[in-house]
Simulated scan of single mutants.
Amino acid sequence: MLRRIVYLLLFCLPLCTLAQLPKNAITAVAINHVPVAVTDLAAVKKVFSSLGFTIKEGRVHAGITNCFVKFSDGTYLEFVQPLDSTQEIGRFYHDFLKTRLGASELAIEVESADSVAQYLQRRRILFARDHNRVWKNVTPTQPGAGIFYTEYADKNWRDKPEYTTHINNATGLGPVYYLATDLNNATKHFKDLGFMDAGPTTSLQAPARAMTIGRSRLLILDASEPGRMADAFSSRGYTGICGISIAVSSLDVLEKRLRTLSKRGMLTLRKDDKLYALLQPYALFLEFSMPAGTQQAHQ
């Protein structure tokens, strides 16, 4: 009898432990970076240099070549051109480009890759893991997941100032915009992947749903009413990441550069204290804004 009681306790203990775990067990830091798939790396370098960004060169590896726009807060944009579709990463971006160019997924920095794996296991979400001496990755393998999680070995590492200083005064990634045909399904999708639902809102004069993860914010736009900057993508039937906000300490340099670029055919827009640039070839718009409480420093 005593042996049966011991067995029963041993069986129930893991169930009790799981029940005590918080529903959102992912300790996320922020949206760390956004990969953007392109077919011509030289062309995208020219565009972002024209916008006043410093470009950090990447390298050829795993079937791709890449470059970066890095920021002083540790966040960054990665531009990826596939070269070899027989290699796993090259194949991923090669397949993505069959649909469109543009931002492919969200890279979420987390405190613990192990806790992410446990979180996904409890929700029966399949995933793959890989690691090296710099990071540990956990990637949900369900179609259309559009996200992966990264734990960095050195959580305080920042790139050299020569790579994170920009003429346009950019300092880091802000909210990311996501275009969806069904707000409720998209909300559930990201909740399942560890995001918190911050409720309905209005963004770019269109209905939206606000999601948060760590210190970052994801704004899901309704594809039936996407707002002016995302309308071009909606009209083509595109969904997924459609816009990226970038924090800047001043709008002056950008406004001058965007004024010049708008004469060359790039659609630009100023709305209150924000500037927008529509990069139609990349199915992406950029939103430039100053942090709340920052005063415009005129140059």
Rank of each mutant, 00 (worst) to 15 (best):
F96H: 07
Y93A: 10
T141E: 01
A206S: 15
D192K: 14
N32S: 14
R270W: 12
L261W: 08
P35T: 04
L15A: 03
A206I: 01
R257I: 09
A113P: 08
G199A: 06
G146A: 12
D130V: 09
R259F: 06
F92M: 05
L9F: 13
Q20I: 11
P175F: 03
Y152P: 02
A103D: 04
T139M: 12
L41N: 06
Q118V: 12
K98E: 11
P200R: 11
P140H: 13
G90N: 10
L126E: 14
I244Q: 05
R236I: 04
L261T: 06
V34N: 04
Y282R: 06
V44K: 09
I244S: 00
I55G: 12
S72P: 03
A210S: 03
A25Q: 12
M1E: 13
V60P: 02
N132Y: 13
V176R: 01
V253W: 07
M196Y: 09
L173W: 02
D273N: 14
Y152V: 01
K274H: 11
K155T: 07
Q295C: 07
N24S: 04
N24K: 03
R91H: 14
S250Q: 06
A117Q: 06
N184G: 08
L13G: 07
R91W: 08
R124C: 06
L173G: 08
A37H: 11
F148L: 11
P22R: 03
V6G: 06
L183W: 05
Y152E: 09
H166M: 05
N169C: 09
F127M: 01
D114L: 11
I64C: 12
E111R: 09
Q205C: 07
F53S: 01
P22H: 08
C67M: 07
F288H: 02
A25S: 12
L275K: 02
L204I: 13
A170N: 04
F48S: 05
R264I: 03
N137Q: 14
R100N: 01
L251G: 10
T99A: 13
D182C: 06
N32H: 15
Y119C: 00
I125R: 04
D222R: 00
Y178Q: 02
D95A: 10
N32L: 02
V6S: 01
A198W: 07
S249R: 07
F96T: 03
T187H: 05
M211N: 00
A43D: 13
L275S: 04
R124H: 15
F48D: 02
D159H: 15
E109T: 03
A28H: 04
S250M: 06
A180L: 05
Y149H: 05
Q121D: 13
D154H: 11
P207I: 04
I213S: 00
H298T: 14
A153T: 15
S262G: 07
H33G: 05
Q87V: 10
E109M: 00
S104K: 08
T54A: 10
L126W: 08
D114Q: 14
D197G: 00
